[in-house]
Structures are given as structure tokens and as C-alpha cells.
Amino acid sequence: MESELKLRRSLLYVPGNMPSMLQNVSIFDADAVQLDLEDAVPLAEKDAARILVRKFLDGYTKRRQEVFVRINGLDTSYAEDDLREILPARPDGIRLPKADTPEVVEHLDTLLTEFEESHNVPLGHFKIIPSIETAYAVLHVFDVARASDRIVALAFGAEDYTASMEIQRTKGGEELFTARNHVLWAAKASGVQAIDSIFADVDDVEGLRRETELVKKLGFIGKSLVNPRQIEIVHDIFRPQQDEIDYALEVMEAISRARELGTGVISLRGRMVDAPVVKRAARMLKTAVSMGLVAEDAVDLSDEMIHGVL
């Protein structure tokens, strides 16, 4: 439940074999970082990158954001070594590339569970974000989404998807429309978040802005990013508008009254305020609080208030 409301507007990729980037992680405002052992690392340096990431994470104790590690695909010979090396450094989760089938996710889930059991880590500590990045994956995304309780979000990967479709990715994104919706439907139907793909052209600020506005409209709550310069733009677009904030505050006030009265449902401006409306309002306000648009003590966003009696 908690992770559904977690802010994941920006999931910044950081190349796993570059100390100059890794050691800046603590200054980035991204909601999460994805330390990359996969595409950013040449085959000959896989061993070096996983050791570097491990050593870096060992020392990065006061973490400023969620830390995911993108391991190599489970169909490669690197993935299990990746996990063996980096799990002891306790990342928050794994970004799993090429999550084409539920079996792949189940396999990772098993490996994580085994590690948790043998290393005294609370069961379920490690989260999973599967990458939906092939035509096959898009067709199986609903099953993938339900393959593990560890999944907190589905991440669409447009670069590999268009490659698998043998088409060009365009800045308009028309070619991605249906695939994005598939990912969104699976995410919403399974109660997990949906994260959109990277926007590779770092210098095209307007293009990033347009694409982020589009995917926000569709239902994505965040994007994977390739450069820290993209963080501020994406956060800006996911910034709640004042009328949205005002309405959300009214919703929380209404539900707070309802909780006092011992009822779970109440109406506001003639419309029923039920659980989904409250969750939506709470998510909005969490974003607003994190951006300084609403004072932290102005509203009660405890799980108890959001979900009723726990």
C-alpha cells in the first residue's frame, strides 16, 4: 500500500562504472536512482561495475533517495553475479530488464527471497521494477505485473521496444501510444505505478517537456531519466496545480471528518468521496508537500488517514 503513494516522478539512470557520476548520487534531487550494470557497461567491465556499485553503496549510508540497481538480464550469464555482489549493499530494489514473461520475474523473486532468508533481511525488502521493453512483454504485461508482490511499478522501455518492433522511435511518440496504454492498463489493474521510458535527447528541453506532459495525461506517474538536468523539468510537469491541491485538501478534510464520524464514505460538492478519490488526493498532496507547495503539517497523510483503520 505504502509504495503506491511513494513519489517516483524521476528515476535517474547512473552508469555503474563511472565513479565521477556515482559519487554525485547524493546531490541529485531525483526520487530514485537506477545504478546501471546493464546497457551503460561494456561486457568486459561487468565485473568492475558491479564491484564499484557495491563499494559505492556500502558507503552511501545516508541515502537521499530510493536506490535501484539495473542488473543484467536474467537470460545472461551476468545477472546472478550482479545480485550476489550488490544485494549485500542493500539497494531498495532491482530494475529488471527484459521482463518479458511472468516466469522471469518469478525467477528474480525467488533469488531475492533466497538472499533475504539467508542474510537475515526482512522478507520482501527488495522491490522489483520490471522493464516492459519488447513486443512480447507488452502482450504479457498484465501477467508480469502480477508475478510478484515485490513489484512496485512497471517501467516502459521505448528504446528496446521500438527496436523489437523494427521501427524508429519519434519525438511525437505516436508509435508508442498503444504499448504505453497496455503498460498503463496492467499497472492500474494491478495497483502498481507506471513509469515512462527515457527521453534520450538531453539537449531537447522542449521535447522532454512535451513528452512528459503527454505521458502524465495518459496516466504515468514518472519517467526514467538519463541525465540529472532532466530532473527539474520532469518534476515541474508533475507539479500539482493550485486548484488540484485545493480540491485534494478539501477531500482530505472531508475524509478526516468521515473518519471521526466512523464512516468511510462521505460526499463533497455533491460527489461521493471514496477510497480511490482519497488515494488520489493523498498522492497529489504528498507530491505537493515534497515540492514545498503545501506545509508538511497542513494535512494528515498517515496511512491510517488514507486507508482508514489499518
Binding site: P19, D47, A48, L52, K55, F56, G59
Partner: peptide, 17 residues
């Protein structure tokens, strides 16, 4: 100008190799 963690990592990598 590497920090300690990078020194640890590179030495370990070289020695494992």
C-alpha cells in the same frame, strides 16, 4: 583523484582478474 570506495573497488577488481 578517486575516493576510497573507488580505490577499494578497482583494487579488488584487478586482483580478482
Amino acid at each position: 583523484g578517486a575516493l576510497d570506495y573507488a580505490i577499494d573497488a578497482r583494487i579488488e577488481t584487478a586482483l580478482r582478474r
